[in-house]
Amino acid sequence: MELNLDLRLPRDAASVPAVRRLLDAALQALGVEETIRGDIELMLSEACGNVIRHAQAGDDYTVRVTILGERCVIKVIDSGQGFDPARAEGEAAGESDGRAEHGRGMMIMRTLADDVRFRSFPESGALVALEKHLRYGPGSLGGQLHVDESNGLSSRVRSMNGTDSDLEEFATRLFDMARTGQTGPLAAYVDAGVPPNLSNEKGDTLLMLAAYHGQAETVRALAERGADPERSNDRGQRPLAGAVFKKEPEVVRVLLDVGADPWAGEPSAADTARMFGHSEFLAWFEERAPRG
């Protein structure tokens, strides 16, 4: 089961209760438990409020919601001036006397969401991404759809003990999902039993293919499910070096977040950055993972 909402809204405080009610109606129809819906309502309000505070007059902002099985992912995106995530963290921890309301909002989001990510792009805008695990009530529509889909996926994975052509066709579909960033379906297959480090005839793993093709969210989802960000292919290339070569900054950030070593491999990600003159990546490596 996958449900998607994509809303473009005016920079107006009145838009917040509107989007909140719309999402809550969808969650209620699926039978999500009331306490979970309340958490989502509050953290969505804080995320939208944060964007409205930082957006420029006249800017629109976007709310994207994906409900996939028992996961709800909310992304709130604006096109304003952005914000400093480090400063926001300090405010949330009480390190700043000013903008206390903003700091409390950050703390609320971190407390209620299972995962929170902030991205800020000066002069271009900001992204707040929230994830919440859903619980469905007994006999609910969402619960039944999730059970049916999970059983179907598990059966599909188990049935891959069939012919070689069946296996090859199924694996090809999975690799295509990684390349094209079909995060939800691919994550569902991995959850149902597909090995997270599945690789093709060249030794390219699902994570490697996603990284090389700029699919940052897919890379993160695979890493969260046990995919090894350090596994090299048959040519000795690692995902981080591939992302540097393709100049994919979001993928590079994600791989550093999940522990990829920029100094490992031949050539390493650092070697690749030097070779192609990507000095910004070298600065990130020194800051995020200084050579020991």
Rank of each mutant, 00 (worst) to 15 (best):
P249D: 11
V128W: 02
S165F: 12
R158L: 14
K132D: 10
A260K: 02
E131A: 14
F170S: 11
A241L: 09
A92D: 13
E131Y: 03
D176L: 12
Y61E: 02
E91T: 09
F285D: 06
G58P: 07
L174A: 01
K247G: 06
H278K: 08
S140L: 08
V128N: 07
A270L: 10
E230P: 00
E266P: 00
G181F: 03
S96H: 14
P85K: 09
R135P: 01
W263M: 09
V116S: 08
L198M: 10
L127R: 05
R225F: 00
N200L: 01
G184R: 04
H278F: 15
N50P: 03
E169P: 00
G181W: 00
S150E: 13
D114W: 05
R253Q: 12
D204P: 02
F285C: 10
R291Q: 15
P267N: 07
E123P: 05
D115A: 15
L145A: 14
E149W: 06
D84W: 08
G142D: 07
V258G: 08
A211E: 01
L240N: 04
S155R: 15
T183M: 10
R37T: 11
T180H: 11
T66N: 07
Q56V: 08
L256W: 05
A57N: 01
D148K: 14
V19P: 04
F285L: 12
V258S: 08
D114Q: 09
E266F: 06
E266C: 01
V51G: 01
R64G: 04
V32E: 06
T205D: 04
Q237L: 12
F118C: 07
I40A: 13
G203A: 03
R220P: 00
G265P: 05
V254E: 06
D84G: 10
L23P: 05
Q215L: 05
G49Y: 09
P267E: 10
G184I: 02
A55I: 00
Q215I: 02
H146M: 13
K247N: 14
G236L: 02
R179W: 00
G125F: 06
V190C: 05
V258L: 05
R238C: 00
P239R: 03
L22S: 09
R8L: 13
R231M: 14
V251H: 02
A129Q: 15
N233A: 04
D148T: 13
R291N: 12
P122V: 02
A126M: 14
M109K: 03
A223C: 06
A192G: 04
E230G: 12
T180I: 02
A18F: 12
A264S: 14
P122Y: 03
V254M: 06
M43L: 15
G137E: 13
R288K: 14
A243E: 03
D191R: 09
K246N: 09
G181L: 07
